[in-house]
Design a binder for these strands. Structure first.
Lengths: 200, 200
DNA sequence: CTATAAATTGAATTAAATTCATATAATGAT
DNA sequence: ATCATTATATGAATTTAATTCAATTTATAG
């Protein structure tokens, strides 16, 4: 009697449907112009039903960010070559980071929307605790990967700050690139790369 | 008959009052939790009146950012020593930038709120055109000052990208510092400084 | 074929920003 | 001082969405 299992599967399925629809709409028209009733209608559910699967509109958006982190982490892992020099590894990481940003800029929009200071205090609970935890774990994993690349394992305290700076810098570059209508990241990318590698 | 002048002065005065009140409230409780009726009540005006002075809540917030840029620009100018070496000048600029960020972090919150990609498309007109123009002029001036510091006047095309990268990096650092609850920017600041100066 | 539990519905509620018809106040000319 | 005109200000009404929740539907297991 695998009824329970099937039900659970179906529930996850519906959740995924909601997420997929939300993604499509958010990417298409942005977060603000996408409404919950609209998402609901598109997945063929009533507005209220969305709230059985997610705490809030923001929680859906954040969930997408988590998925983005997974993608990024996978890509960074794939390029991670333990035998290369720190410089080589860091270079590969930076390139993969920017490549991801160019191909999936929407996830960065979520970062800068959802991770604002503002959101810490705004409402009792835009997000579920579990989401926050998962987010922090993924952030940490990114930093860990970068740290590994930069120092090939040696984890000095100096390194922690360096890596934090590195990561913030890369994100900052993407933010301003995203803001300006400019298509090409190329020039700034390679400039950034040079600046960072100079310090390795 | 300086009536006209006086009236204009009074109007500016009221505008400044609104801005001051808004600033106080935004700083205190954040953008979202501050409501227009609340601002109105605090300046002792009716809600509708605010809209005679500003297009929207967002326009008020952006106006504060403009004021922040002015402050930052002034400080950067003050530290600007044409006789020092590019390295020295850049170092001074970075330090002044972070010092400003530490003392006035709220302005950075506005940057990351208002300058999101999202905001380009969300509504017909959160902002007045004149605001956007003033914003861009100030941004440009910041970049110009940085450019001057970095290269002591020589404006090569390489430089443009370098400076853009530099500026984005600094902002990125502040964003993530702001997000984490951490008090101390110190360590990351000096790490950032080293990274940048290595390339000068 | 029930009784129970799970899932869904969608109309009602809530919360703010914003608008706008109306009112008030100031000005300058007569 | 009076009045027509213009500039300011008002605040109740409107609008727009998110979110809630009492009621309904659907599925399950005994």
């Amino acid at each position: 009697m695998g009824t329970k299992q099937r039900r659970e599967r179906e529930k996850l399925e519906r959740r995924k449907n909601i997420l997929g629809t939300a993604r499509k709409l958010f990417w298409q028209k942005g977060f603000q112009k996408t409404t919950m009733p609209e998402i609901a209608e598109t997945v063929e559910l009533a507005p209220g039903t969305l709230y059985l699967y997610f705490q809030s509109k923001e929680a859906i958006y954040l969930e997408l960010l988590l998925e983005g982190y997974d993608m990024l982490i996978m890509r960074l892992r794939r390029k991670n070559n333990p035998n290369a020099s720190p410089k080589e590894r860091t270079k590969a990481l930076i390139r993969e980071f920017f490549k991801f940003a160019v191909n999936n800029p929407e996830y960065f929009d979520i970062i800068f929307f959802v991770l604002q200071k503002e959101f810490g205090s705004t409402r009792d609970s835009w997000f579920e605790n579990s989401q926050i935890e998962r987010l922090e774990a993924k952030e940490k994993e990114c930093i860990r990967l970068a740290s590994e690349a930069v120092s090939s394992g040696q984890n000095t305290p100096k390194n922690e700050n360096f890596v934090q700076a590195l990561w913030s810098m890369l994100a900052g570059i993407v933010f301003f690139w995203r803001r300006s209508e400019r298509k090409e990241l190329e020039k700034i990318m390679s400039e950034t790369e040079k600046i960072i590698l100079n310090s390795i």
